[in-house]
Simulated scan of single mutants.
Amino acid sequence: MSTREDGGMAAWSDWKQVEGEGLDDFAEIIYEKKQHLPSGGGIARVSLNKPDRMNTLTLATVDEMFRAFYDANHDPMTGVIVIAGKGRHFGAGGDVEWERWGLREAFYNRYPHNRLIRLSRKPVIAQVQGYCIAGHNHMAYCCDFTIAADDAVFGQAGPRVSSPADGFFVPYLTKVVGAKKAREMWMLCRKYKAEQALEMGLVNTVVALDELEAEVDRWCAELLEKSPGCLEVLKAAFDQEMEGYRESCATSAAMYPDWFDMPEGKEGGAAFLAKRRPDFWRLREREAGMRQALLDAYLADGAAPAAGE
């Protein structure tokens, strides 16, 4: 077992890819563990591994993350889970091409990736560099800690690409950055640089990009010096914050049960793929005209009920 010193604070074994049934055939993530030699505890790292697609998410990604999280949470020698992204960016949200059909399954049949973090017994750290947008952004702020490189950029994109979102991870952001900033982030789809994110409380600390992994190691070392059982209880206690909110997709499914088959539901993704500005209000104008035409026809047919009926 080789060791290395991290700023004189901690000695670690090398990362080792996890092997075992269901854990060594991943196509979308890399799953590794290493040991903190002074304490004897270990950490697990789940790295999103599609750098050529900016680590975009599909349900296949979440399925693989589930297996890694399940293993890490059932390993008594693992004290912390790190979520990272390979390449220049942590991630740019859902794969828009996949979302054109796949979001139907995600909305009505499956579990969101944030639920893995919320139900994890072990503290979870997001290790963020480059873009941290949309699904990756709310995954990061749902983590117990977020460590950002100085090149990180955060933000949401749902309303820009006709991708509705609801459930615990939306209102939870008000607890992280405050109600006004949370609505600004979700409704305006603005982007925020790392220092802005630090100022609003979206991240715990910002370091130079070449110091990012070492900084995450330092935070992990501090956590591993504490009672793992106490940290598990504390994480569960803090995560009660999210238990009072509805699960994902319930509001969207109730308000717009046919969203993905409606023109507005298709327009954002189509515009993104075509690299053009979406034309939501032209669609709304046509819808208003059709509604009025239907009402006029109904009244012209004398179908309106008489007063008092």
Rank of each mutant, 00 (worst) to 15 (best):
T174Q: 13
Q156F: 08
A134C: 14
A152E: 03
E28L: 08
L231C: 07
P51N: 01
L223T: 00
G229S: 04
F107V: 09
D14P: 03
W219N: 08
E287N: 08
I29D: 02
R218W: 02
E199G: 10
G85I: 02
S248Y: 06
V82C: 02
Q292D: 09
A60D: 14
F168E: 06
G308A: 09
S248M: 13
F280H: 04
M255H: 15
G308R: 07
R67A: 04
P112Y: 05
R53H: 13
R218Y: 05
Q156R: 11
D239R: 15
M262G: 08
N204I: 14
Q292R: 12
K175M: 07
L23P: 01
M77N: 13
Y70L: 12
R4H: 12
Y111E: 06
M200P: 00
G7C: 07
R110Q: 06
G178F: 06
R276W: 00
N49T: 00
G20L: 00
S39R: 05
P112T: 12
E105L: 15
E232K: 10
Y256A: 12
G269K: 03
Y108R: 13
V216A: 03
P76A: 07
I83H: 04
L188K: 14
L48E: 02
A288I: 12
V96L: 15
R100H: 09
L295C: 03
A194I: 05
F272V: 06
K181Q: 12
D258K: 09
R291A: 13
E222M: 14
S120G: 08
A293Y: 00
F107L: 14
F69N: 05
R88A: 15
A44S: 10
L23T: 05
G158P: 00
V216Y: 00
